[in-house]
Design a protein around this nucleic acid. Structure first.
Lengths: 206, 206
DNA sequence: GATTTAACTGACCGATCAGTTAAGTCAATA
DNA sequence: TATTGACTTAACTGATCGGTCAGTTAAATC
């Protein structure tokens, strides 16, 4: 049996994904999770703190998925495609169940609250950072395989996360999840433009 | 002297950009615009309708900027870079004034409300569509110049809008506007992967 | 100068908001 | 058996929400 705290977090992930933060009240969270108001505030000092816990769990879910891909036995180019397909699959399933694309909790919350709720912005920043880190090994593998030349793994991974987030915005706006991976195969060519021809061992500036 | 209606729209653009939709009340909009509650509802049937008017104005502002670039005398590759620099400049200026990156009203609202407020989602969809259309001539110019081979202008332009939106998510999350155009120069290479080698005059499938 | 119209006023409404309070349940421990 | 403290309950608070409404003002129209 899932703990009450975990139930609240999972309920929050679902509701915030579906209706955003502002449009979901604590009362709705409680009735959905079948928990009383006081129980909510026993576990979380505020609605905002629940959101941060939700962001952390959501982030670790996708971090695992990205990390599994990075350390799988696919060839690096296949890994890139698989990366884009993780959120795309989630959005297709969500649309099947709810009628619309969900986007990504981290991107959604960052755009809704990031400008004035600093703890939330930092949680989103940490989430995207963790995803970037999970993806970095793939850039290194492409460097080793010769597909790339000494591309900064941080910058290369950031390009991938940025492209995925761009696709998520398009997917949610057009209610079309396939926009997420539409340009997955274009990402390799984009990465190649980041090629760095400095001496081996030299500190990268990016 | 700006009309009361226009004042409300401009005020809404600023407030919704800064704090999102849910976190801004009609009372705050009215006091900021120095307008009474009743006056607000004389011009707009609801808060949501004001948002849609704000989205339309915001969209046309950037549509003009993109269109001007497309029809300027720059070489096509310079135009691509200039495209990314429009929102980047806006975000730098906003951060200078308010301490944080604003993102983009269209992307922000699409992610916050797009899942359950269909008119807003459609307004955002229309906005992104108008930007895509404004950008399409650049793809055609790259085709003519030989930098691209028969790339679908719709798909190419969508790649650009998608990459810009991705950069905007990164910029707002990390409060770092330079992330918007970080991969502008990588976009040409990405566009080239869309090259289509079908017979001339053949209907493109995308 | 009578009438109509759009612009505008500000008090007001019920609903809902996030969050609080205090009483009680119950399993683990002493 | 007594005590403890994590957990749960449900009624409650003051503030704020989006939106309404009866009425005022001033300029245009006849």
């Amino acid at each position: 049996m899932k703990s009450t705290r975990d139930t609240l977090i999972d309920t929050a992930i679902g509701l915030f994904l579906g209706k955003g933060y502002g449009a979901v009240g604590t009362a709705e969270i409680c009735t959905t999770a079948k928990v009383n108001k006081g129980t909510f505030y026993h576990f979380f000092p505020s609605k905002s703190d629940l959101l941060i816990a939700a962001l952390e769990r959501y982030a670790s879910l996708f971090q695992s998925a990205f990390s599994n891909i990075a350390h799988s036995d696919m060839v690096p180019e296949e890994k890139l495609k698989a990366l884009f397909e993780v959120p795309e699959k989630a959005n297709f399933e969500w649309r099947q169940a709810h009628g619309f694309a969900q986007g990504c909790l981290v991107g959604n919350m960052a755009l809704e609250l990031g400008a004035f709720d600093e703890p939330v912005r930092l949680a989103a920043q940490k989430a995207l950072g963790s995803w970037r880190t999970a993806v970095e090994p793939i850039i290194d593998q492409l460097n080793v395989a010769g597909a790339l030349t000494n591309v900064s793994s941080a910058k290369g991974a950031r390009l991938l996360i940025s492209m995925i987030q761009g696709g998520l915005v398009m997917a949610k706006t057009f209610n079309e999840p396939s926009y997420i991976s539409e340009f997955a195969s274009a990402s390799v060519a984009a990465l190649k433009t980041l090629n760095h021809s400095g001496r081996t061992g030299e500190q990268l500036s990016h």
